[in-house]
Nucleic acid binder design. Sequence first.
DNA 1: CGTGTCGTTGAATCCAGTCAAGTGTGGTGG
DNA 2: CCACCACACTTGACTGGATTCAACGACACG
Lengths: 249, 249
Amino acid sequence: MSTTAIAPGATPCRNCPLRRKPLFLPFSDRELSFMEAFKVGELVVGPNVMLLEEGQGSAHLFTVLRGLGIRSTMLENGRRQVINFLFPGDFVGLQAGLAGEMRHSVESTTPMVLCVFNRADLWTLFREEPERAYDLTWIAAVEEHFLGETIASLGQRDAIERLAWALLRIHERLSSVGLSEEGKVPMPWRQQDLADALGLSLVHTNKTIRRLREIGLAHWSAGTLSIDRERLAALALTDPDRPRRRPLI
Amino acid sequence: MSTTAIAPGATPCRNCPLRRKPLFLPFSDRELSFMEAFKVGELVVGPNVMLLEEGQGSAHLFTVLRGLGIRSTMLENGRRQVINFLFPGDFVGLQAGLAGEMRHSVESTTPMVLCVFNRADLWTLFREEPERAYDLTWIAAVEEHFLGETIASLGQRDAIERLAWALLRIHERLSSVGLSEEGKVPMPWRQQDLADALGLSLVHTNKTIRRLREIGLAHWSAGTLSIDRERLAALALTDPDRPRRRPLI
DNA sequence: CGTGTCGTTGAATCCAGTCAAGTGTGGTGG
DNA sequence: CCACCACACTTGACTGGATTCAACGACACG
């Protein structure tokens, strides 16, 4: 069911975040040639494939081109925490790229296509392409912000607020990468995944989702999610129009 | 009671993380001269001073030279989440430095001394000092890892495990920057701060700390903390000797 | 057609939050 | 000097949200 293949010298990463925003803008010729040089290949995997495993080193960094995934860690007591979900445009493996070992696992949920880079090329990037390096750090800082927001949710919101916040965030993120159709977005993860992400039990997650459906705030079935954005945001106590990405310098 | 002062051209940051680890190693002459150039001044503040405020822009980045602080955000429902505690060697404001606006507040707990940088110099850093830029990104990646660990704690550990984990982590961190004396480290934060960091109520935090004291795992009083490291680690379900920082590339 | 996975639902239990009151300490001003 | 207040820390009692246990239905798959 799951296949992996690296296709060296494949087409350049038009969706790659290793450049200035906004997403989906075409690269310049100079950028294209650079990406070609830095890129090692393209990784195509089926669903439910472990891309990076906790505790192991990796010679590669990845950029998600297509598909959705999960970044998670296992605690010493055997419980699983989903750190975040992976969307197209996400960068994966910087930590391992810098520190040399993975502290978390990365696995695909849907089939995925990833852009593969050589870890060893990272230093070259910083030396010869300061703009790219700057963008990379910017991505890390944005990522850090999102993790901070997650911490706030796990620490200070109750179950229904957490669910509202998570579904809203996922819906926004998928819409921003063009995966929304008539307000519906793909939602391929299991309830167990969402429960592990929000620090809730599977049972309570299920019942809370039911509550959201009953009051008409979110419908999630058959791998598809549709929401009442305004009212969900009110419940999540989050300003949905809060600015996220500002101009650099 | 609280004073702030910027002293331009002060002594270079011997404790600054903008360089390769380990901490406390002296800078090379080249590094020193660079730090002198990049550094704008030194910020000295009293306890309980708001250094950066949520929603505001800042022209500066900081490095903690001395003292302890708090990084926190306010949720829309008025509840506070402490993202993390600040120790000597921490870098503050990268997110604002890149995104232009703070999404969280930073305040001092004890008197602090910080190294001040110009946000606008960040791009110069990337262009002219790729090594420093690399180190900066490495710091961001390490920070990201710690936030991931916090997420796992808030999501998957119960109250006593969270406390054990937090006290262990704080003790380790303070020891690593040389603030330990005979196993005792300063612990200037309030129980309310720790509660807000761990997503627990003040009352329950208090009672859990009491439990830890009664079974002899941690003593925290009068701003001083001492722990039984081995048994606390066993309770926190964390391997205390897990390697944290590996060689670069 | 058995098997496994995921989703769903009910009941009982318990951990953690809330409410409320009390202690101790340091600072302030009469 | 002492009354008073502000603040952090304690402690007990009650409540409730979330977990756990358990069972069942739907569906895909070999």
